[in-house]
Amino acid sequence: MILAIETSCDDTCAAVVDGPRILSNVISSQAAAHAGFGGIVPEVASRQHLELTVPVIEAALAEAGVGLDDVEAIAVTAQPGLIGALLVGLNTAKALAAGRRLPLIPVDHLQGHVAANFLGPEPLDPPFLCLVASGGHTLLAAVRDRAGHEVLGQTLDDAAGEAFDKVARLLGLGYPGGPELERLARDGDPEAFEMPVAMARDPGLDFSFSGLKTALAYLCRDLGPAGVEARRADLAAGFQAAAVGQLTAKLKRALKRGEWPAVALGGGVAANGALREAVAALCEEAGVGLKLVPGLLCTDNAAMIASAARFAPRLPFPDYLAYDARPTARPPLAA
């Protein structure tokens, strides 16, 4: 049984997992604490994590109906993420493990998103292509075994979800704005405004969203507040279609370059209905399976960290006492 802790961004998470079975998956969202700032404030996130981590761990144990004596290893997100936020989870995890002489399993957050697919009740076996799009990352990964992934493409600037949130803010929507933007887009004409097609001529599989965001900012400036108000639905629809178009275009290209029996979609943006539909249509056309993990496993959570930990190296006590967090994904996580 693995107890996992995830504090890399703005959700304080703990989970207990037994093999592929989730016994508990507790997520304490800090959205309300950040809403007034219109985005995630790292220092606010770190302060919230410090308050919430132990109560969330206790809730995860209680919900799973187990005690620390039943736990055989402590898993924790060690990279990448907000460094101050990571430090809270990592130091809590190290202390928790050290006090009981348990092994510690440092986990790469992105591998966590990939490993969400290995959880029950219907785990997906590699090989598959995994598209992770969230407020913090945009990643196209080749998953050939359960221990890791190969990055085929990633964003060169903003993450997809970050672009959704920033555009939502331009349109005067609340934070986080992704879901509201999607609602608004349903009533809009995606072709009312011409949107730049980012990276279309780039032969690679990387993403870019800052040009799209900037185009929206210019459009909003030219329209003026009253114009934006009147055309909000069209602006939302145009942006969403362009963003989803870029994600699916790269996925399509990756599918063509290899033999992939399945595609998995994860990250907070995977909750976007337009993206789900577009990816589903693409998979049907290409004749490959599609795995959509449930919503709670799409956004940041600790069950996915525990899932990744099952296939990651364990650091025995006391080898991890000096282990430190890393804000970026490089150098790669190794035992």
């Binding site: 981590t53 809590t92 202390a95 928790l96 006090g99």
Partner: peptide, 18 residues
């Protein structure tokens, strides 16, 4: 801020553990 949090997170983790 970071130093304070490393100390308190470690103390809370050890407290829970033991």
């Amino acid at each position: 801020f970071t130093g304070i949090r490393v100390g308190i997170a470690s103390a809370k983790g050890l407290g829970l553990s033991r």
